[in-house]
Design a protein around this nucleic acid. Structure first.
Lengths: 141, 141
DNA sequence: TACTTGGCGTAGCCATTGCTATATTTCCCC
DNA sequence: GGGGAAATATAGCAATGGCTACGCCAAGTA
């Protein structure tokens, strides 16, 4: 079973490969805001657990297991980002919050959040009304 | 700054004192499903950080700082439970999901979720419409 | 008062995951 | 093809927060 930290790395790696075709240690480190030495260490663990195949100094590729997991993680991450954006969370807080919670929600909750997003997408005036509530609450304090 | 684990303990302690008037090591341990020795260790840390005052073998009381924090944590927990309930998450999943995410949300996100709840409270038909979206999405699959 | 027992505390271990400092490899440019 | 800079790897340390094993206190009972 993957720890939250392992999921963070896998997700990042998947995204980098998806966008740039490869995932370098330094890119992963920058994205997760950790030092390169931490990345190397974690990559070795992910290799040992068969999420990827790693060759020292030469790079890595995801195994089918790693790809499948990575895609699920990335989709879930994007969903949660959209959710927080929709309800008005400040952009500066979104990445950190999503990274914190994404590993701890059941698929039931994920599905319900998906539905909630669809609810706001279908009628944009709903988001406007939400913002009105916000303004009223702010005016009270 | 309190770590997630420290928050778990504080919240539990606050709730125990709120409900029973006192918080024994064994009650805390049972509630959090850890061993009593772990509780003692954490209590000492919370004492050192002035969240509570602890006397060996005799018990503990929360400082004003600890009470304030404990109340906030408990309120946050309840808010998140209400949120998941409102969007239709199955009751069996709620407690575990809230336990997982409660320590990882900025107060900005908490406020936005509070607003979202108020939005649904002000007009109950909104929740009905959300459930309609859910049914439509379920029908598609 | 003395004993027993259950609750509590301490010491020390382990895993996780970050860090710094240092070594090694690769790549690019001359 | 060789030298140096950039990238990557390794070693070893620290904090966190569990655990087990064992020692200590104190309340209830005889």
């Amino acid at each position: 079973m993957a720890t939250p930290s392992m999921e963070d790395y896998l997700e990042r790696i998947y995204k980098l490969i998806d966008e740039k075709g490869y995932a370098r240690v330094s890119d992963i480190a920058e994205g997760l805001e950790v030092h390169p030495s931490s990345v190397t260490k974690m990559i070795q663990k992910l290799d040992k657990d068969n999420y990827l195949i790693y060759e020292k100094y030469r790079g890595l590729i995801l195994t089918p297991k790693g790809k499948k997991m990575g895609k699920r993680l990335m989709d879930r991450h994007e969903l949660l980002e959209n959710f927080l954006t929709t309800i008005g969370v400040h952009e500066d807080n979104i990445y950190k919050d999503v990274e914190g919670i994404e590993h701890h929600l059941s698929w039931d909750s994920i599905t319900c959040i998906e539905t909630l997003l669809e609810y706001f997408r279908r009628d944009p005036s709903r988001a406007d009304e939400l913002m009105n509530v916000r303004k009223e609450l702010e005016a009270e304090n």
